[in-house]
Amino acid sequence: MTSTGGFVSETGSLRAGPFDLGYTIEGRGMPLLIIGSTIYYPPTFSWKLREKLGLIFVDHRGFAPARTEYASGDIGFETVLTDIERLRAHLGLERFAILGHSGHGYMALEYAKRHPGRVTRVVMVGTGPSHSARHMALADQVWEETVSPERKAIFERDMAALGTDIAARPEDRFKSLLIRLGAKSWHRPDFDAAPLWLDVTVNNAVFDHLWGEVFRDIDIRKGLSTLKAPVLLALGRSDYLVAPASTWDEYRGNFADLTVRTFEKSGHTPQLEESELFDEVLLSFLGSRPGCG
């Protein structure tokens, strides 16, 4: 254990097939399991949250170092969900809230469907209903019809440099893409996200499969009837990476308990862009209904 920002921080890893899945525990209080990278995600959440919650950051296979070569059978969605259960058991978690940002929101939701007795709350941040062609076309339509010429100019400038980035570091093509998509990702279109990605392991094949295929075809309605835990959907007004908030309307009736909150001065990552308001909304949601123990 080490001391970070005044809090005890515990780190470790769990071997899962070819991968070493890292975990980091920071803070105290109600456990909140956050799926994604144990390097990228901790800096995006405020230190004040650590005073109220025990934040448990866990890697999935897209962000985990691989000790050996891996095949397509090692990176399926069901395998990723099984890994979350492995980590839960390894960490001794009994009842907890779960959070997923962007595509990780699907992981959080699908895990909760499969383990309703474990999950008290589900939080999806910056997640669209799917990455289908229809939903992505609607995102493009909002971009074309509502975005300022200044933001579009920044986007064109940054995308023009993407090819050079990938040619120089092909192994970092996913990271390079997300950094260059800043005008679609952040409320402030010239925000430089590169420091957040330093030292982050990215397995491109995992993202190609999950983001390019699984989340393209996903139907989140399946299995929702088993999920009684309240769900918070946190969206940024300036998020042009995913389908617009209005696309969630046709799904609302499928949730037993859904709260939707739009952050007016955020893009894809409201927990960082409007951290104080995000903390308030999150803590209120986690403590506002029965079953959060």
Rank of each mutant, 00 (worst) to 15 (best):
I166N: 05
T127C: 08
V214W: 00
L138D: 06
G6D: 09
S275A: 15
M30Q: 15
S72D: 13
T226Q: 14
R151C: 02
P129H: 03
A183G: 02
F207S: 10
L32G: 11
A229I: 09
R114D: 08
D208Q: 14
I218K: 02
A183W: 00
L21N: 12
V125C: 04
L53A: 12
W248K: 05
E69K: 13
M107I: 10
E276C: 10
D219G: 06
L181E: 07
F207Q: 08
A64W: 01
R173V: 07
S102V: 13
R88E: 08
G54P: 12
A139V: 03
I166P: 07
S130Q: 03
P116L: 07
R173Q: 05
R86V: 05
I75T: 10
E94T: 14
N203C: 06
E10M: 12
F285G: 11
K184R: 15
R252F: 11
A183R: 00
G5L: 13
G5E: 15
I25C: 10
D208G: 11
P65K: 11
V147L: 01
P170L: 03
Y41A: 14
R261G: 04
H135T: 07
A89Q: 13
G105K: 02
T247H: 01
E69T: 13
I56T: 11
D59W: 04
S266C: 02
M159V: 02
T146L: 00
A153F: 01
N203K: 04
F285M: 06
R216E: 11
G5F: 08
T24S: 15
F45L: 15
P290F: 03
K48S: 15
I218T: 13
P65C: 10
G212A: 05
E273Y: 00
V147S: 02
E273D: 08
T2A: 14
Y23D: 14
L282R: 03
S132K: 01
T82D: 15
V202H: 02
F278L: 04
L55G: 12
E85F: 03
R67P: 09
V231K: 01
D190W: 03
L241G: 02
Q271K: 03
D165E: 13
S288E: 15
T201P: 09
A229L: 08
L235R: 07
R188G: 02
R237M: 01
F278A: 05
E150Y: 01
L233T: 11
T247K: 01
V242W: 00
K48G: 14
A183T: 02
E156N: 09
R114W: 04
G76Y: 01
S9C: 15
Y106E: 06
R61I: 15
G5W: 06
H104C: 13
V206F: 02
L282P: 10
D165Q: 09
A97Q: 11
F278M: 03
V125I: 10
R180F: 01
Y40C: 09
H115N: 11
G73A: 06
V147T: 12
S185V: 07
E78L: 07
T247N: 02
I56S: 08
F57M: 12
P270N: 09
G92Y: 06
R151L: 00
S275K: 13
E264N: 07
W143A: 01
V202P: 07
Y240N: 00
D165G: 05
Y106N: 08
G62T: 11
L235W: 01
H60G: 10
P18G: 09
P290D: 13
T2K: 14
S9Q: 15
